[in-house]
Each structure stands twice: as structure tokens, then as C-alpha cells.
């Protein structure tokens, strides 16, 4: 039963990892990398849980693909538009940044 559950987690992580890569390749151009990022993150968590319960090849593949998908989507997304030091950013500043860039 436990093995079946971890197998399910591994398959889910594999699917999510593949999806996040596919989204990066085909949808990052239209600014939808954040969807791939979320899927990749969920994929990483599921694959770690699967590997902890039953370290199979499928779980490892899921982990690797999810990490690749997450990293690619994050790199396309994180532009450091305002990596502010603390809570110093105000609504005024956000408005300025958004109007400057977009």
C-alpha cells in the first residue's frame, strides 16, 4: 500500500516536472512561466516525499525534471524588478516601477 502511494507521488512529480519544462518552452514567451514555476515546485515536493518513502528511478527522474523546470521558469521570471531590502517599498514606488516598465 505504502509502495503504491509513493509510486503515485513519483508519477505525479514526473508529470509535473515534464509539464513545467513544456510550459517553459512553449509559454514563457507570453509571460506564463509562473504557471510552470508553481507546477515545478509542487513536483519537487512530491518527488522528495516519494524518494523518502521509496527511492525509485521514477522518483529521481521526477525530481530532476521538476528541478530543471522550476529553475528554467524561475530564471525567465525573476528579473529583480525591485529586490527591495526590506519593507521599504511603498505603493508610490510600485506605481512608478510599473509605469516605467509596462
Amino acid at each position: 500500500m505504502e509502495e503504491k502511494k509513493s509510486n503515485g507521488l513519483a508519477i505525479a512529480s514526473l508529470v509535473l516536472g515534464i509539464l513545467s519544462i513544456v510550459i517553459f518552452i512553449f509559454l514563457s514567451f507570453i509571460g506564463l512561466s509562473w504557471i510552470g514555476l508553481i507546477l515545478g515546485i509542487v513536483g519537487i515536493v512530491l518527488s522528495v516525499m516519494a524518494k523518502k518513502k521509496n527511492p525509485t528511478g521514477m522518483a529521481t527522474a521526477g525530481l530532476v525534471l521538476s528541478i530543471i523546470g522550476t529553475v528554467l521558469c524561475a530564471m525567465a521570471l525573476i528579473a529583480c524588478i525591485a529586490c527591495v531590502g526590506a519593507l521599504g517599498q511603498t505603493a508610490e514606488t510600485t506605481r512608478d516601477i510599473l509605469t516605467t516598465i509596462y
Binding site: G31, W34, L77, I78, A79, C80, I81, A82, C83, V84, G85, A86, L87, Q89, T90, A91, E92, T94, R95, I97, L98, I101, Y102
Partner: peptide
């Protein structure tokens, strides 16, 4: 900012833009 400008902004677009940029260390 969102509360102040929710009438003039396209909320969905603004949220997407905010997801793209801005991190607090």
C-alpha cells in the same frame, strides 16, 4: 497600492506583473 488603485488598474495584469518582479530579502 492595490486597494488605492483597484478602479483604475487592470487587477489581473497588475497581479501578474507583481508576480514577475519584486522580492523582499
Amino acid at each position: 497600492f492595490l486597494i488605492e488603485n483597484y478602479q483604475t488598474l487592470n487587477l489581473w495584469n497588475t497581479l501578474i506583473q507583481m508576480l514577475q518582479g519584486g522580492f523582499v530579502f
